[in-house]
Design a protein around this nucleic acid. Structure first.
Lengths: 356, 356
DNA sequence: CTGAAAGCGCTAACAA
DNA sequence: TTGTTAGCGCTTTCAG
């Protein structure tokens, strides 16, 4: 007769607690706590016994319980819209890495572009996050006040808030757009057009204003215009409308790269005979792919993320100082999707750029 | 004399607690708790008084405290590698939405491709997450055991684990790769090549095996081969090597779309004269962009995410049942980057597909 | 350096 | 339906 197979190891009813470890190690529960607290004063002997018992029991300190008492969760709430836009995916990636380096975790909230984000933010505050980062997500002034009252620092990325209680880190929307206007003019374009994102997004508005103002200064009339709502399909449709016009534009500045990719596809596949320059904004990953090659004004990821983390830390350490409001300069990267002026092209970090 | 400006409202030392609300509403603290618990029995009158007091004090239930006692955090840990790969960005987006619909939040962990993920997972378990989703991230068998002991369901996406304690949801690696082999053969290609991802990733290995096996069955010798490590730059370099050979391949099956985009760029920009078909795997967003048009075998996002959520729920409700292990079938989407056979092309949901 | 004791803010029996 | 009571697992004084 063979022995019956051993019963599978029953999962314990509950995870081991500091108490269990203490009992097994023959020390007090607070000794266990201290053994797992970096700076605490524990003798080597105690620590060793605790560690052994902890290992035997598979003990893992409960961070939930810890944050209850320390009132710090080490969690940063991050709300992102447009995760299908590679720029925001990359931003989230970089942000997550940077926050992990400061000992924080990311609690992710995906916001739907049009929708009201207040309920989401309401929810995230219940988790007692240490801070909030909103990437291309709006913040109502009511909610900004609530966050201030709750003592939760807020950093907006790529959005400007009316409320000055929140830090804002943005790319150089106005400057970049103006540079693009000069670039297109210098390249000999006569009929520039603008493809807008969401009408109520500060990014799209600032880029359009910068573009139109500079064009006017250069003696152009108001540019042609269509709205892509920061949506790929709608940007394709808008591009079709623009290029089908009796007098189509010879240059198209898209409010972001994501729409630029859409415009590029339509221009190349459906209007192949028509020479139209396409310029984007962001320098999202695919813009640099050889198969696409989208000329674009960059929002440099690393510097922006660094600023976000700095702003966060500053507000956590000195809540009474004014929040950081910074504009991070980018560069106009020449990738081939737009006809270029003869002058002003230079090399920077291996990339061809235009300085004007 | 004008009055001095009113002092800015001092942020309260601490957030209001259920106790504060109770005192103000003239009820017990547990009444407050019940007023904020969906199914609890509270009279309309009590609820009204509580809600009023809560609103006045800006009270927000502390979810940390709640999870301490309920032992459920409503948080799912999600570890993702390759967020720069649009497929995984979209997967995360869809997953986040699906989990929010089931009342869960996503605690995000970004894993670096090569690195050991155990320390990260160790950390995430301390947050007492209700479950763990690993997207293209490995799970050591030691860690799989730890999760089982801790009672934390684990779902792997696009990874197979040796350990059968974790649920696995994958695309049809073998079937898709075999279909691609038949597709290329039917299209008249003579020298197919394979661009591998990471050598130790189950995705790349299964796709290569399926491809090579089917080619052999069709009478081909072993395909040419290069390794791109699922990295854009290295995939470009590998493509260059393949296409520079004395007898270059006339078709290139890339282990994923991300490398396919790299290959497409190199093939089109650097080897324009050379007719080489490129096929990917995933159907990542840009594959469908008109400007790129990558023919690829899809891993359908929604069905996969649905399965992930199902697997998660099942393990949370019935921890003793065997975890789900499912392969989600895709389709070979014809986007123009590969020469096509005359026969077998059909239409499905507005997409041209090849069924073989 | 160590242990005892007092909570963090909340939920969940249990009586009333 | 309500209030009372006892913790969830941990950190943090405070004595010793």
């Amino acid at each position: 007769m063979s022995k019956p197979p051993a019963a599978p190891p029953r999962r314990p009813e509950r995870a081991a607690t500091a108490h269990d470890v203490a009992r097994r190690a023959g020390v007090s529960q607070s000794a266990v706590s201290r053994a797992f607290t970096p700076g605490a004063s524990v003798s080597a002997a105690t620590r060793a016994r605790v560690e052994e018992a902890a290992a035997a029991l598979g003990y893992r300190p409960n961070l939930i319980a810890r944050s209850l008492i320390t009132r710090r969760s080490s969690i940063v709430g991050v709300a992102v819209a447009y995760l299908d836009n590679p720029f925001y995916a990359a931003l989230l990636d970089a942000l997550s890495v940077a926050l992990e380096a400061t000992g924080h975790r990311v609690l992710l909230f995906t916001a739907r572009p049009g929708a009201n984000t207040d309920p989401i933010l309401e929810e995230v505050l219940r988790y007692r996050v240490d801070a909030l980062v909103l990437a291309s997500v709006g913040l109502s002034s009511r909610f900004a006040r609530e966050c201030r009252q709750a003592g939760v620092p807020v950093v907006l990325v790529n959005r400007r808030s009316e409320d000055d209680g929140a830090a804002c880190i943005t790319g150089d929307n106005a400057g970049g757009a103006a540079l693009i206007a000069r670039f297109l003019a210098a390249g000999g374009h006569r009929r520039p057009a603008f493809l807008a994102g969401l009408e109520d997004a500060s990014t799209s508005r600032e880029r359009e204003a910068g573009f139109a103002t500079e064009l006017a200064a250069l003696g152009f009339g108001p540019p042609l215009r269509a709205v892509g709502h920061y949506d790929f399909g709608r940007a394709e449709a808008a591009t079709r409308v623009l290029l089908s016009a009796a007098a189509p534009p010879d240059a198209l500045f898209c409010a972001n790269d994501h729409m630029g990719f859409a415009a590029l596809g339509v221009a190349r596949r459906e209007f192949g005979g028509l020479p139209v320059s396409v310029v984007g904004f962001d320098d999202a990953g695919p813009a640099g792919w050889a198969a696409l090659g989208l000329t674009t004004y960059s929002q440099p990821l690393r510097p922006m993320v660094d600023r976000v983390v700095t702003a966060l830390m500053r507000q956590m350490l000195a809540p009474d100082e004014a929040p950081l409001r910074e504009t991070v300069p980018g560069a106009l990267l020449l990738r081939g999707s737009a006809r270029e002026p003869h002058d002003g092209v230079s090399l920077q970090d291996g990339e061809r750029v235009w300085r004007g």
